[in-house]
Structure formats: structure tokens, C-alpha cells
Design a binder for these strands. Structure first.
Length: 369
DNA sequence: TCTGGGGTCCTAGGACCC
DNA sequence: TCTGGGGTCCTAGGACCC
């Protein structure tokens, strides 16, 4: 047991969040299957209500499949601005408990109770109170996990949803983890799960008992990390609200684009959007990249690094077009998706001046950010 | 059944330099 | 004539997450 594993960390996950918000705002949808996601011919499911899940509908499923499984479902496109409002209210509840809050997405956050609650009993009391406040103040349910690290907190919130509450104490880790399939570990997706299965590793117990050198030979540094998780160990500190490392826009077209002029126009439009966001956030980028997906789903990305940071729309458009023409092996089969992105972000001088201007009152938080 | 959009992180290989 | 060793930077692709 490491020093870090004497922490008490909670994870809060809103239940079927997008769908639950739609049911909250439209009482006629309550108790009915609601599926939120892209409504076009190539859309996928973002969130399905529990009623829809009983038909077999789930996240990331193509909408066409969902409609077949659940023909009487209510299909809605997401309203992110509305979800953000509620997400902000939930986060403000968490922040009223502790400043140690790490947001994962609109519907998920960690909060660290180690300082506020010196024992697990006290932490459980506080975390249950948070769950109650979320229900009272938003009319929505959430699931909460509490454990000695982030991995176990998140696992706890998944094990008892919806409307769940699960504490994983250090002494109960093995009993909870051992029987789970390895795919339940955060960071083990389909590919890694298959590879592990190929090695005869099906459950977390198998992973825990596999010789470390075998895991490292087969999976490299990930092997070591996975075995630590299998033992319930996770040293990763609570993240601060990290600055974004990249900005991008991409679109899957409802029909493949074949006209080169149209493709160019789309690249320019996406580049302009990205540049606009860069400028609004007072950032400069030193990398510009383009992404093209063909109808057969083969996907190409091309990027170039610049000597200086830029944010001009015209320049980013020009560079993106250059990458498209000179570096992407365009075929006459058309393209399914186009994306434009920027990375290697830095704060532009205008923003730097305002940060320095606020240094006396905000110097510490600016330095930490 | 036919596969979104926004991200993060990791790996591998090549160019280049000393 | 057959080929060092290390470090850094850059690019492309892929796994994964929500």
C-alpha cells in the first residue's frame, strides 16, 4: 500500500445523462425509450435511456441499428448547451465541497475528499450527501463510487448504476476486482482485451497472477500498468483542469464528397472554424493537420510544423489546402470525412499581457494552470 | 448493423546532428 | 566498403475515452 493509496477519491457519473435531461425537460418522454445522437444516415447513438437499453440500444451504436432494435423510440439530436448548464450546476455542488475537482466530461467528474474527510466513513457520508444534493438540485440521478484512488472510484460508480453508490475499501479490492472481465479496466478496449484473451487472460484475477515479465514482453509499458490496476493500485494524481493540447473540427458527410472544389470548400470552412476558436481563446498553434477518411474507412492524417505560432484563418486554410493537395493520396472514390486540426498550442501575446496584468491577484493560479 | 466528434496518449521509424 | 551510438525533432497511425 503506497502513501497515495491512503487517499479517499470519489467519482460521480450522471445516469444516461443526455437522455435523462431530455426526459426532464419534456415530461412526455419520461418512462419511454429516448435515444440521443446524430440523426443523419451516418449518425451514432450518444446516449440511450434505460428504457431504450432494454431493447439492446447502447452508446456508439449506429443509429440505423438502433432504429431497427427500437422502432418506437424517441430520437433526438443532442442539445449540448443545455447539458452544459446542468453539468455546471453539478460541478458547482462538487466545488462547494472541495476545490479538488477534476472534470472528465459533461457527465463525469472526480472529487478528492482526502483532506476534508480523514476516514472512509466520513468520506462516504459526504459523498452520499453530494449524491442527494445532485438529485434535489437537478432532479436527475447519478452514480457515485468511492475508493482509495481514481481507478477504483470510477469502477465503483460503474458497478452500481443507475442511481448507485459503491465504496471500494482497500481491504475489499481483490474481492471486487478479481472476477471482473479484463475489459472492465480503464484503458483496456476491444483490441487489448482480445490480445489478453489470446494469452489466456480473461479476468482481472488472471491478469493479477500473470508473470510480470510475460506481460511486459507482450504489451510493453502498458503491461506493467495493467498489472498495477489489476491489483487495484493507481498512483495517478488528481488532474488539474489541464489546458487543451489541440483543437479540431471534423465532419462525416451524409453522402461521400467527390467534387474536388466542394472538398476544398469544406476544408476551408473547417479551417476557418478552427482558426476562429483559436482566436477566441487567445491561442496560437504551431502544427496544422488535416484528416481524410475514404468510403472504405481508411483514414489518412497529414500534419506540418511551423517555425512560429499562428492563428490567422487565411494561413491555416492555405496550409490545410496544401496538405490536402500535396500529401493526401486522393482517389476518385470520394471522401467520407474531412477534418482540420491544430496543435502545439501556446498563449498568444494579447492573452499573455492580460495574465501578467492580473499577476498580483491571480499569479499563483496562473502559474499552476 | 455499418460504423460521430471531440479529445489524449503511445509507438515506431526516419532525418539530422554531434 | 559496409556501416556507431545517442539525442532530438518530426510524422503517421492507432488505441482508447466520453
Amino acid at each position: 500500500v503506497t502513501v497515495l493509496d491512503t487517499r479517499r477519491i470519489a467519482h460521480l457519473d450522471m445516469d444516461a445523462f443526455f437522455a435523462a435531461v431530455e426526459q426532464l425537460d419534456d415530461p412526455a418522454l419520461r418512462g419511454k425509450p429516448v435515444i440521443v445522437g446524430g440523426l443523419g444516415p451516418r449518425g451514432v447513438v450518444a446516449t440511450a435511456s434505460y428504457e431504450a437499453r432494454t431493447c439492446g440500444v447502447g452508446s456508439a451504436m449506429p443509429m440505423a441499428v438502433a432504429r431497427r432494435l427500437c422502432p418506437h423510440g424517441n430520437y433526438l439530436r443532442p442539445r449540448f448547451a443545455r447539458y452544459k448548464e446542468i453539468s455546471d450546476r453539478v460541478r458547482s455542488i462538487l466545488r462547494s465541497i472541495t476545490p479538488m475537482v477534476e472534470t472528465i466530461s459533461l457527465d463525469e467528474a472526480f472529487f478528492d475528499l482526502s483532506t476534508r474527510c480523514p476516514t472512509f466513513d466520513l468520506a462516504e457520508e459526504t459523498a452520499r450527501a453530494v449524491k442527494t444534493r445532485v438529485r434535489v438540485e437537478t432532479d436527475l440521478t447519478c452514480s457515485v463510487g468511492l475508493g482509495p484512488n481514481r481507478f477504483l472510484a470510477k469502477l465503483g460508480s460503474e458497478l452500481d448504476k443507475p442511481d448507485g453508490f459503491c465504496v471500494i475499501l482497500p481491504e475489499g479490492v481483490r474481492e471486487v476486482l478479481d472476477p471482473l472481465p479484463v475489459g472492465r479496466i480503464w484503458g483496456v478496449g476491444q483490441v487489448t482485451e482480445r490480445r489478453l484473451q489470446g494469452l489466456g487472460i480473461l479476468r482481472v484475477r488472471d491478469l493479477r497472477l500473470t508473470p510480470a515479465n510475460l506481460l511486459e514482453r507482450e504489451l510493453g509499458s502498458m503491461g506493467r500498468r495493467l498489472q498495477q490496476l489489476a491489483r487495484g493500485e493507481d498512483d495517478t494524481p488528481m488532474g488539474r483542469e489541464a489546458a487543451a493540447r489541440s483543437i479540431s473540427r471534423e465532419v462525416t458527410y451524409s453522402h461521400d464528397l467527390t467534387d474536388l472544389l466542394e472538398i476544398e470548400a469544406e476544408v476551408r470552412k473547417l479551417a476557418a472554424h478552427v482558426a476562429d476558436q483559436l482566436q477566441r481563446e487567445h491561442l496560437l498553434c504551431r502544427t496544422v493537420r488535416i484528416k481524410v477518411r475514404f468510403p472504405d474507412f481508411r483514414t489518412h492524417t497529414r500534419q506540418l510544423r511551423l517555425g512560429v505560432g499562428v492563428d490567422a484563418a487565411g494561413l491555416i486554410e492555405q496550409l490545410a489546402i496544401h496538405l490536402l493537395h500535396d500529401r493526401i493520396p486522393l482517389r476518385d472514390t470520394g471522401v467520407r470525412l474531412i477534418g482540420v486540426g491544430v496543435a502545439d498550442l501556446s498563449v498568444s501575446s494579447a492573452r499573455q499581457l492580460s495574465l501578467f496584468g492580473g499577476e498580483k491577484s491571480h499569479g499563483r493560479s496562473a502559474a499552476a494552470a
